[in-house]
Each structure stands twice: as structure tokens, then as C-alpha cells.
Design a protein around this nucleic acid. Structure first.
Lengths: 120, 120, 120, 120
DNA sequence: GTGGTCTAGACCACA
DNA sequence: GTGGTCTAGACCACA
């Protein structure tokens, strides 16, 4: 269900967080669907349960999942989360574009960077 | 000349690197212009000289500056650097756009995020 | 009769305990009135019978209900319970007010927080 | 500087968080003052560094401290934090009062609970 | 020295 | 079985 890249410089727990975020935002994991248990996922990914625990804690804090003690972790509804995520992306784009033009990059060059995904 | 934000979560040396990169790319620091000495900058910013040293080392490794033993650190020409930087930015943009559409963000919404910098 | 919020961070059995406590204190469940059977309530709320059993055990321990073997669980009289509950609330209030003034909160500000319920 | 009560049912890291919160809100720890290092505090309180780390992480997340990598943890300014804290307290008071009147507690009885701190 | 991440493994509360 | 907390201890990046 989830893939971890040990060569990635980001911490493992952060990768786990991001993977689940996207799965939930895309609707692959539906509202109120149960996530793998901390222990099971730890075994499956050959990670320590503490690492998974930390990732799940982060996901809960950010509203992506909720925890029922003794039962497990479940996905929250994604509507509000998607809006928040979109805003974050727009903010990131603005940041990048701001520095880009500050070093003299043209609108044309910026768009070239972006247009490429259309071909994908 | 340079501003460091201790509350920024990034390591200090990384902030120093980025500030100088932009100053050089923008041409504020011209080709062959001398950078502040490690010692002076450390005092000015109340930082450990090791931190500055590390930042300068990184800048040299990336081709932004060159070192003349006994004389100091000097800015390289920015032409090639700018091209490389532009490619990096385009790559970043593509990455972001790719995940954005994967969660169902429309072209319209993407562009809204970007257009904002024009108003700035 | 009772509502359980799985997204509430408190354990389920604790929520069950609190709901019944208030129902009994308010007199909605009268003295000697029979509570739902463990089995029925478990089905109705889609909970594990163990969870209900635990909640009822706790309610009994605190004197809110009594058990008649083979017959079921029944509400105790609420007079003494109310007095005890009031004292608990006053204790809680004192605790909060104590820390509040320790950080410099004025009597005025404290009262503003409290007065709001009057409008409700 | 800080006292931990092992008999307290709350998790240790939470107690650490609360103690530092109050120290910062009261101004005992001033803005930009350095907190004890993770390791030192762990030794002093006979706790595992991980536990302190978690507490500091929580304090940072809530804006009470900021971390400078390689340097340590430092207190943030408390003005905004105090306002937020006051609102939390008022909210707690409202919650308690709401349930209190729902079981028939009079305004008089509520105030008796509160007035006691004045004598302290 | 300072914080950040991670593994290994124990123990507890809850369902 | 499920999550939550904690200890012990290693290793790394940063200053």
C-alpha cells in the first residue's frame, strides 16, 4: 500500500505521512476506512512501530485521520483537507515564482516549466 | 548585507548559502567581487565561524564562489549559474504541478496560485 | 438514548459513563429505573459488549447504578450524587482559577468567560 | 526548575509541557531565554531524552518555544500566547458551567466555587 | 555540545 | 488485537 525510499533524505516518518495524505486526498482511502494498524504496517515496511506511531500522530494532528482507542486509526473526510491542501500548493507556487522573477526569470520561462505536466 | 532568522527551521548555514546564492544570481554581488571574510561575517551575524565556513564551502562546491588562498572568497560569474537555477525551478514547478493534478486540482486553480505574483 | 462520538479522543467507555451520569443527575433516568441491558446497548451503539460492561462497572463503583443479578442495572437515587458532583465542579473551578490568576488573568476576564453561559 | 509527579496520571511529557508553558506565560522564562538542553533536563529529571524531546516538540508546535538546530531551544515571546491561553481558560470555564447548570447547579453555588481563590 | 531520527523492546489502557 | 507512553541506546547533522 505504501512505499518508503530509504535513499530519500527526508525522515521516514515524514514520507509515511505524505503517502497517506495523498491516498486520503485522492480518495483511495475513503472516509472512515481503517488504516493498517501501527504494528502491521511496521512489520510490512520493516520499520519500528514508534516510527509509524509518529507518522500517524502527525496525520491525526493535521486532521487527516482520527484515532479510536483500542480500535485503530481511520481516515477523516477529505473535503476540507483538499481545500487546505490546494491553498498550500498555491502558496508554494507563489513562493517559487517570486524568487524566480527576482533573479530575472521571465513569465515565458516559468510557464515552460509548468506546461510540461500537460504532456504527461 | 545578510539577514539570518533563527526561528527559521532550516539550519543556519543553509540560510547563509541561499542568501548569497540569490545575491550573486541577482548581480548584487558582481563577478570577482570579494565576499566578507569568514571572521568578519561571523562577528557581524553573531554566528560561529564554523557555520560561515561551512556555508562558503557549500557555495564553492556549487560553483557560486571561488577561493583564493590568503586572499578570500570571490563571486563567480553568474551566467551558467542562472541557467542551472532556472532548470531547478522548472523542475520544482513540475513536481508540484504533478501532485496537484493527482489530487484533482484544475489547471484554473493552479494558475490562480501563480498569477498572484504578478500583482505583487 | 445515548450518543457516542468516535472522533472524541476520550475512551469510549468513559463517554458512556459520562452520558449516563448526566442522565441520572438530571433525573432523565429516574431512581430505580432500569438501564438498557449490556447486550442491547452494545448492539444499538455498535460497540463491544465489554465496553458497555466496563462502563456499567464504573457507574456502579461510583454509586450511580446498582446491579441486581439476573435482572439488570438500575439507577440509584441522585440526591447524594448531585452534592458530590457539585463539589467536584467547584474543585475544578478553583483549580482553573488558580492557574488563571497565576498567569495574570484579571477577575474581570475570568468573569467574562463565565458570564457567557448566561446568554446561552 | 521543573517538578514531575510520577503519581500524576497524565503522561510525563504532558506534565513537562504544562510546566514550561506556565513558566513562559508567567515570564519566569523570558523571551529568547534558553531552555535546558534535552540531555541535561533528561538527566536532571531522571527521564529518557526521548521524553523531553517529545515535550519540547509539543511546545514548539504550540508556539511556546523555537528551536535553533545545534544551539538549543529558546522561549518565544509570550504576549500572543497569553491571549490564546486566556481564551482557552474561558472556554473551559464555559464548558464546566454549562454542564453545571444542566444538572441544576445554581449561580450562587457556582460562584462559591470560584470565590474561594480570592482568599488564597 | 545541541537537537532529530530511528531501532528494540517493555508495559499499560482500551475494545 | 489496538494505540500510547516510556526507557535504553545508537547515529547523524549542525554550531
Amino acid at each position: 500500500m505504501i512505499f518508503i525510499d530509504l535513499k530519500d533524505s527526508r525522515p521516514i516518518y515524514e514520507q509515511v505521512v505524505e503517502r497517506f495524505k495523498l491516498l486520503i486526498l485522492k480518495g483511495v482511502i475513503e472516509r472512515d476506512e481503517k488504516l493498517p494498524s501501527v504494528r502491521n504496517l511496521a512489520v510490512e515496511l520493516s520499520l519500528n512501530p514508534n516510527t509509524i506511531q509518529r507518522a500517524y500522530g502527525e496525520l491525526e494532528r493535521q486532521g487527516y485521520i482520527y484515532t479510536v482507542k483500542g480500535k485503530g486509526n481511520f481516515a477523516s473526510g477529505s473535503e476540507k483537507l483538499i481545500d487546505r491542501y490546494k491553498e498550500e500548493i498555491q502558496k508554494q507556487l507563489r513562493e517559487i515564482c517570486k524568487t524566480a522573477i527576482s533573479i530575472g526569470m521571465t513569465e515565458e520561462e516559468l510557464m515552460n516549466g509548468i506546461r510540461e505536466w500537460r504532456k504527461i
